[in-house]
Design a protein around this nucleic acid. Structure first.
Lengths: 192, 192
DNA sequence: CGATTTTTTGAATCATATCAACGTACGTGG
DNA sequence: CCACGTACGTTGATATGATTCAAAAAATCG
């Protein structure tokens, strides 16, 4: 049930069995169906979700109703509207499931409690957010310095499972492009 | 000397005088001249820099020698190649000064020590990196969903001091565009 | 003031968006 | 298990936006 979650935790910060049990008490599991919302724009984000298996995405809607995908989360990733969770302001992102998924939820209050009583949890959080930050910085770098073709090639290399499991028009959205354009770019790439 | 640094620290996590003195022992100050490097691509990033006053930027160079600016840092911001600092791998970013600046340096070993002996320092770090993460996520969102004009307008609204103090061709680079293009976009905007 | 950096402009070219249409795959209910 | 509807990917024609290269103004620095 929490296998992957604790596997990741222990990889970063080794835990004793007692610590693990303590933390387990603050976790919730949730199953979510394909197309189901975990969070809708305007609601307050009450929890951060760790993906045990399945796939989710976070996206915004613009004034034309076009989706812009900010993040994918496959097994082993966290997803949430962190700003909303931190401030209790209405979320600006929608989060929904691309596949039937099993999640481990960490509510805001659980995070606050665990921060107080479990120093290793704070260390874990710091490591998590640091690697998320580095990943975002890389993404910014590629978005300002690479062509669409290069950004796509990068994605295929670094996250092949995302490309395999997520519809191509969503990859286009994630890359800041349009389905037709990505389709044409890919066509040009065959053979390379 | 460390005024702004502790002002920011205390705003997030209030410190006693003793804690403040303890932390002060791990800090270094550094003056850096306009155009001087704080970090060059290929070197290992040994410290994170807090800007007391002045302005710096982090950027990459592509195969044509074109600069791509990943981050600006004015007073009150931190700047570093976090990945390099964390892993001791060679830095992928260059960091240099856009103005004569005064910095407070937090070396890697200082961070490690302070994490051990000062829980408030860890809490401070977590808050810092969390807000940096949220800022990057916003930037990604605007880069995939907004036009250059909108992104520029955003920057003017949210960080007017950056726009005031940084040459326009660097703003263009930061926005993932070219100097000529931003100049033309601005021309179209006058009056709006 | 002279030198350098920065911004602007023009014209040609290239990349991406748009709109409309078509073919295919998929899964869901009958 | 088939049929139908929806979602997905591709293609074409055209429009729009951004880049490139070259050059000249304008601003800034020492």
């Amino acid at each position: 049930m929490y296998d992957l979650f604790f596997h990741h935790f222990n990889k970063k910060i080794p835990l004793t069995d007692e610590e693990q049990e303590l933390i387990k008490g603050y976790l919730t599991v949730k199953k979510i169906r394909k197309r189901q919302y975990l969070l809708q724009e305007g609601d307050v984000c009450k929890a951060s979700a760790f993906v045990e298996n399945g796939a989710l995405r976070a996206y915004t809607l613009d004034e034309n109703g076009t989706e812009h995908i900010v993040q994918f989360a496959l097994e082993g990733w966290f997803i949430s509207d962190m700003y909303s969770m931190l401030t209790s302001e209405p979320a600006t992102y929608n989060i929904d499931a691309l596949e039937d998924s099993n999640l481990v939820l960490l509510s805001r209050s659980a995070v606050e409690e665990l921060q107080k009583i479990c120093p290793k949890f704070q260390a874990f959080q710091l490591q998590l957010i640091t690697s998320a930050y580095i990943a975002l910085q890389r993404r910014i770098t590629s978005s300002i310095s690479l062509s669409l073709e290069e950004r796509y090639q990068n994605l295929v290399t670094i996250y092949p499972d995302i490309v395999r499991r997520v519809p191509q028009h969503m990859i286009a959205s994630y890359l800041g492009s349009k389905p037709e354009t990505l389709s044409r770019v890919r066509k040009k790439m065959v053979g390379r």
